[in-house]
Amino acid sequence: MAEQLKVEGAELRLIRLAGLLHDTGHGPFSHVSEASLDWFGDKEKLKPEQKEHKIHEAVTAEIIRTDPELCQIIPDAERESVIQLLGNGYGRSVLKQIVSGPLDADKQDYLLRDSYFCGVQYGHYDLAQLQRSLVLPDPDGDLMIDEDGVHAVEQFVLAKYYMTANIYRHRVRLITDQMITRAIRLGIESDNLEPMKRLYTFDGTAGFIRNYQKWDDARFMETFSPVHGSPPGPKSGAMLRRLRERKLLKEVFKDPIGKPYHSKSWETLRGLHKRAADTLSKAVAQRVAAYLTEQLGLKHENAIDPDFVIAHSYGIKSARESSRNDEEGILVNVKPAPQPFTDESTLFKSINEQYSDNFVVVFAPIEWPNPDTKDALRARWKEPIRSMIQEEWGRTKT
């Protein structure tokens, strides 16, 4: 991208460093760690500039700033420039847009890479044509595409949409992500595991960074759910053992938020403040656990543990909304003035931006009595669980 846009010299080196270093703040299980870092981060101890960004981005900045090996090979001023570029931007606008924007190199890479490694075709698009379409009419202005590149961008945006709908929001992906996140919550809040707490409670100190960089997926699993011996935390260990043995939670409920209910409270379910959403999720989990225990005829000693029931909501943006990144649109270089891509694309003008999919789901630690009847059971449980969610929503709001 940089070469296509005639970015050279020190700017090219800066972009290369930013590309190499932009995800160094990810912990075990990469993006899955973000929710736990944001939840447990000690924001009272963070510097003002660290509070401006997501926790994993603040961790990335501290690693770039303090890592001994990086300090040896990259000058201080250059590391600070990389940190600024990954944050609010540095120098010309195009540098930030190559690294993080609606057409950035990261998206161009991961769509093709993830499509290949998942064995699907959803993420394919014409990379060469897309990059040939990139233009920079004003060296100090915004990255744009030329008029002939509209169809290439349409293909790229649709690839992103289809990968999100079919891979990134796939049921099994959602379940495993939520199981890891819940295991971390249980390890810190129920099992009182000090090593896990230290790992996820970012306080902006050098000690946190030194410890954080010692952890990866393998060490996490072997520490908190060892193959041999008992785990240090009974609840977190049990959840992680389920992952290790592929005894995944089951989706017992799924429903769209909004239609066909036309209930304002239901439609705004995803808009809850995270602490209020947590209260709602726990209340729903309590009721669903008791309900499923009764429905499945489980004895008291085998009753479903509410801590292992997860109520979760998620959304899939419309293809039109997916064409933007943090409200920053893709511009087409047309005369007399550049226009938004969604106005120049006949295809995207025909897409209603409101056509987004939002769902609420419930996962539970059950085994289907008979796999052939699971759809019938889900159908039988749907209205009771839906009513539980709506009732608890009403209590949360009041």
Score class of each variant (00 low, 15 high):
Met1His: 04
Met1Cys: 01
Glu3Thr: 12
Gln4Ala: 12
Gln4Ser: 09
Val7Leu: 04
Gly9Ile: 02
Gly9Thr: 07
Ala10Trp: 01
Ala10Asn: 08
Ile15Leu: 14
Arg16Cys: 09
Arg16His: 11
Ala18Cys: 06
Leu21Glu: 04
His22Asn: 08
Gly25Met: 06
Phe29Ser: 02
Phe29His: 12
Ser30Asn: 10
Ser30Lys: 13
Ser33Ile: 10
Phe40Leu: 04
Lys43Val: 15
Lys47Arg: 15
Lys47Gly: 05
Gln50Ala: 12
Glu62Arg: 13
Glu69Trp: 07
Gly89Asp: 12
Tyr90Asn: 09
Val94Tyr: 07
Ser100Asp: 15
Pro102Asp: 08
Leu103Phe: 05
Ala105Met: 14
Asp106Cys: 04
Asp106Gln: 08
Gln108Leu: 07
Tyr110Cys: 02
Tyr110Arg: 07
Gly119Ile: 06
Gly119Cys: 05
Tyr122Asp: 13
His124Thr: 08
His124Cys: 06
Tyr125Val: 12
Tyr125Leu: 10
Leu127Ala: 11
Gln131Val: 14
Leu136Thr: 11
Leu136Asp: 08
Asp140Leu: 12
Leu143Asn: 00
Met144Pro: 03
Ala152Gln: 02
Gln155Glu: 15
Gln155Pro: 03
Gln155Ala: 09
Tyr161Phe: 14
Thr164Arg: 03
Ala165Ser: 05
Asn166His: 13
Ile167Ala: 10
His170Ile: 01
Arg171Val: 07
Arg171Lys: 07
Val172Gln: 02
Ile180Asn: 01
Gly187His: 05
Lys197Pro: 01
Tyr200Val: 13
Ala206Tyr: 03
Ala206Asn: 04
Ile209Met: 02
Trp215Ser: 00
Arg219Asp: 03
Arg219Met: 09
Arg219Gln: 09
Met221Arg: 00
Met221Gln: 00
Glu222Tyr: 07
Val227Trp: 09
Ser230Trp: 09
Pro231Ile: 10
Pro232His: 12
Ser236Asp: 03
Ser236Gln: 08
Ala238Thr: 10
Leu243Pro: 03
Arg244His: 01
Glu245His: 05
Glu245Cys: 04
Lys247Asp: 14
Lys247Thr: 08
Leu249Phe: 09
Val252Leu: 02
Phe253Gly: 05
Lys254Cys: 05
Asp255Lys: 01
His262Arg: 03
Lys264Leu: 14
Thr268Tyr: 13
His273Arg: 14
Asp278Arg: 11
Thr279Glu: 15
Val284Pro: 06
Ala285Asp: 06
Gly297Lys: 03
Gly297Ser: 09
His300Phe: 08
Asp305Ile: 04
Phe308Cys: 11
Val309Asn: 01
Ala311Asn: 03
Ser318Val: 03
Glu321Asp: 13
Ser322Lys: 08
Glu327Arg: 14
Glu327Met: 11
Glu328Met: 05
Gly329Leu: 10
Pro336Cys: 00
Phe341Ser: 01
Phe341Asn: 01
Asp343Phe: 13
Ser356Val: 07
Phe359Gln: 03
Glu367Lys: 09
Pro369Trp: 13
Asn370Thr: 05
Asp372Arg: 11
Thr373Met: 06
Thr373Trp: 02
Lys374Met: 10
Leu377Asp: 07
Lys382Phe: 04
Arg386Met: 11
Arg386Leu: 15
Ser387Gln: 14
Ile389Pro: 01
Trp393Ala: 08
Gly394Gln: 14
Thr396Lys: 00
